[in-house]
Amino acid sequence: MSHGNAPFRIDIGNLKSRAKDSSPQAVEKVDSAGEKHGFVDREPKKQRGRKPSPRTGQVHAKVLPHIADDIANEQKRTGKTQGVLIEEAWALYRSQKATP
């Protein structure tokens, strides 16, 4: 097929889009038409459940029984984990040490 050297030009005025139904009902029809031919949902599914915690470090602290009770009560009151409480206490300790 020869198109010679005449440059190919597009006249955008010649191009008209036809109305297409994009209503939820139409999409549903299209989905079920697709499923008949094996065109199914293949979107990667988001992982369910809680994201893994970034807190992977561990301390092995033994404290006096009444301190352990205090920490447990504070944890219950604030809803924070013991790890978070220790982080906060550590931050406080560092800031106090930094203060002359």
Binding site: G34, G38, V40
Partner: peptide, 26 residues
Amino acid sequence: QDADGRIVIVDLEGVASRLVSRAISQ
């Protein structure tokens, strides 16, 4: 994009997916 005065070309993955059937419908 359709309302934007452009030719829209949709490139799809080579699988039988719902994305393909939806793109064909438009």
